[in-house]
Simulated scan of single mutants.
Amino acid sequence: MAESPGRYDVPPPGAIAWLDVSAENPDTWSGRLRTGPLGLQIAPMRNARAAYFFKGARLRGTRCVWSASTVSSTELYRPARAAVPAPFDSNVQLLARIDAEGSVFDPAGPAPAALRVHDPADEITEQFAGNGHLFTLSVPHAVIGLEAPAIKAMADRTYGLSPFQQQLLRSAAGLLVAGGEEFESAASLVGVDRYLAGLAGLLLRTAVSRPGPDLAHVESIRLRTDAIIFEQAADPELTPAIIAAQLNISLRQLYRAFTGTESPASRIRRRRLERAAEILAARSGPGHVERVAVECGFASAEYFSRAFRREFGLSPRAYRSAHRDSAGARTPG
């Protein structure tokens, strides 16, 4: 893939904007947060074992925006925004990730992958400790061909991506390296929008939950998953893929067992936060927030602090102070 100048703005209609935020390219990284697709803030993970990078490109039609990127040791975050008049009444945003090696633009076989459906007002948090491929789509709801309630019902769920769906994403990524000279006319831009709307619609239709295993088997997977998370959440290497391997099931089977409820990744994060709260509330706990983050399995102190504040409404330091002040007030003088 040819090297291109870094671009962080949304491209004009018909243009392809390249992104290169990496340790290898200091000209495009000043230590500040950079904004990527869907308004995601791009930041390196602290204490990561590999060099960070976010390299890819995005294409804009008249109303649709598509991106494909290779990501490593990177934290992506978008705060919640002011709500639109009605959820999913304007745009639908899809975020898909494939945990695979190599470049997003190189042919690759199926790998653990997931799709999530977002409203433009949603908070989004994603971490790529290792190499992964990220795909995003922002498409007006009106052109997808699905009713808003049906799309809304798919939000807050994680769908495993089949090899067919992964190939759809990889094929669409090929548009970005082919060049954009043909997209200059109004007719071609309409064609880009139709293609991207069709891609979004096909991904959503094929992601609809199918009849799964019996309830007893699903409940067994959930209980064993929760047990693993309770025992191993402090291990920063624990991921849904590791849990699936320990259960001797596929990652897709694991996610299917949690369809309609809190995802395995969210459960890992919640258990780590609960453990952090226990340590911070204990008078004998470690004094530094950074140490608490590491002890509870968080690779980034900044990510830990943001997640903790969202969960408990206080920063870790404020939470610790509040509990210690409370304990001191209860101690007889």
Rank of each mutant, 00 (worst) to 15 (best):
P13F: 07
G14C: 11
I16Y: 04
I16F: 04
A17Y: 02
W18N: 06
W18S: 08
L19G: 08
D20Y: 03
V21E: 07
S22N: 09
S22T: 08
A23V: 12
E24V: 06
N25L: 10
N25A: 10
P26V: 06
D27Q: 15
D27K: 15
T28L: 14
T28P: 06
W29P: 06
W29E: 15
S30L: 03
L33C: 08
G36I: 02
P37Y: 02
L38P: 00
L38H: 05
L38C: 06
N47G: 08
A48K: 04
A50S: 12
A50L: 12
F53W: 14
F53H: 15
K55G: 09
G56P: 00
G56S: 00
G56Y: 02
G56H: 02
R58Q: 12
R58L: 12
L59Q: 08
G61Q: 11
R63Q: 15
V65H: 04
W66Y: 09
W66H: 00
S67Q: 00
A68R: 00
A68D: 01
V71A: 02
V71Y: 00
S72W: 10
S73V: 03
S73Y: 05
L76S: 02
L76D: 01
Y77C: 05
Y77L: 08
Y77Q: 06
R78N: 00
R78H: 01
A82H: 14
A83T: 11
V84A: 13
P85L: 09
P85S: 07
A86H: 11
D89L: 11
D89H: 13
V92A: 05
V92M: 02
V92C: 05
Q93S: 07
Q93E: 13
R97G: 01
R97E: 00
D99T: 05
D99P: 01
A100W: 08
G102R: 14
S103H: 14
S103L: 12
V104K: 03
V104Y: 03
F105Q: 09
P107L: 10
P107C: 12
A108L: 08
A108Y: 12
G109C: 10
G109D: 15
P110T: 09
P110E: 09
A111T: 05
P112K: 04
A113Y: 03
L115R: 04
L115P: 00
R116P: 01
V117L: 01
H118Q: 07
H118D: 07
H118S: 05
P120R: 09
E123L: 11
I124N: 05
E126I: 07
E126H: 07
Q127C: 09
Q127P: 07
F128A: 11
A129M: 11
A129Q: 15
G130E: 14
N131K: 12
N131S: 13
G132N: 01
L137R: 01
V139D: 03
H141L: 12
H141D: 10
H141S: 13
I144S: 03
